[in-house]
């Protein structure tokens, strides 16, 4: 197996998807909102297709705004069905995301015929072609467009989590206490969902609409099995995300198959390993502990 320059760009893009996903995933896991994240990542699809149909190209800004707002709409719709229509929560999630995703697939399969966006791309993205879509500023090649977009999203997410660390932390741990001291749980809920929408949109081109969920939940869940320190959990999940991206890419080229599929497979594998072996919160941790106590 020999790697060419393009492969490194693809790997970098994979890492740039994995990092913000891992960070936001930690919050989703702890807030018990993984399935809402799943719904959002599905539901941004019609937004992406619509933005694409209107502008006729994969322009970054309208895409992030158009599709990102659709992610927010999903959150509202789920809340609406749950609170106003009084549908049970899991059904609200299920009805909302399948409907929006179906609209997206219909739009793709009926109205759009373009290399950038097709049914396969919807499912598992297209990391391999990322190095060929280059950005040019003043006639100078500046590297792949996707890298710049993802880089920007990374900066935004990192800044968001860094600056508002306390607000996110407290509304995740104890929302009613947060409200009691004047920190709005609703505001930060929607801010977080907005960030998840943005990341889902930005990752769409690389890994598709469905596999984003794996990037959100697998590294975060793995980290949650290893530590009791929230900051360490964030760090570990980023580490697992990057490791899955790189190893998964290598796995995928050796099998000549989808890069995103490979990354997710590795992420699942890492989780499996940690789940079995984690000294503290793994499958056998209780047995291990009693074993050591006896010894």
């Amino acid at each position: 197996m020999t790697l060419i320059a393009g492969d490194y760009w693809s790997m970098l893009a994979g890492c740039l998807v994995a990092i913000p996903c891992a960070i936001l995933g930690c919050y989703l896991v702890l807030r018990r909102m993984v399935m809402i994240g799943d719904a959002i990542s599905h539901a941004v699809l019609p937004g992406i297709v619509l933005a694409f149909m209107l502008t006729d190209k994969m322009d970054t800004l309208p895409l992030l705004i158009g599709a990102g707002s659709l992610g927010m709409l999903t959150t509202f719709l789920i809340e609406f069905l749950h609170r106003k229509v009084r549908l049970q929560e899991d059904a609200s999630i299920g009805v909302t995301f399948t409907w929006l995703f179906a609209i997206g697939v219909i739009l793709v399969s009926t109205f759009v015929s373009n290399v950038h966006i097709d049914q396969e791309c919807v499912l598992y993205g297209d990391l391999v072609n990322i190095p060929f879509d280059l950005m040019e500023i003043g006639g100078k090649e500046m590297g792949p467009v996707a890298i710049w977009t993802l880089g920007l999203v990374n900066l935004c997410v990192l800044a968001f989590v860094w600056i508002f660390y306390r607000q996110l932390f407290i509304t995740t741990f104890d929302p009613s206490f947060a409200v009691a001291i004047g920190i709005s749980a609703t505001l930060w809920h929607y801010a977080l969902m907005g960030a998840v929408s943005m990341v889902s949109v930005a990752s769409f081109e690389s890994v598709g609409a469905i596999l984003v969920v794996a990037f959100l939940v697998a590294p975060a869940a793995t980290a949650y099995l290893l530590t009791d320190n929230f900051k360490l959990m964030l760090g570990l999940s980023v580490l697992f995300g990057i490791a899955s991206a790189i190893l998964g890419y290598l796995l995928a080229i050796s099998l000549n198959s989808s890069a995103a599929g490979g990354m997710v497979t590795v992420a699942g594998g890492i989780f499996g390993l940690v789940f079995v072996l984690s000294p503290r919160y793994g499958m056998f941790s209780k047995k291990l502990r009693t074993l050591f106590k006896v010894a």
Binding site: D174, S176, A180, F230, L232
Partner: peptide, 29 residues
Amino acid sequence: QVSYVPQRESVDWNFPASVLDVVLMGRYG
């Protein structure tokens, strides 16, 4: 000037936080 102590069961005690982390939240307001 007002403080609120919710029921203990209202939060997830598996949350990755230390004792000091939680007490510091009292200063966040």
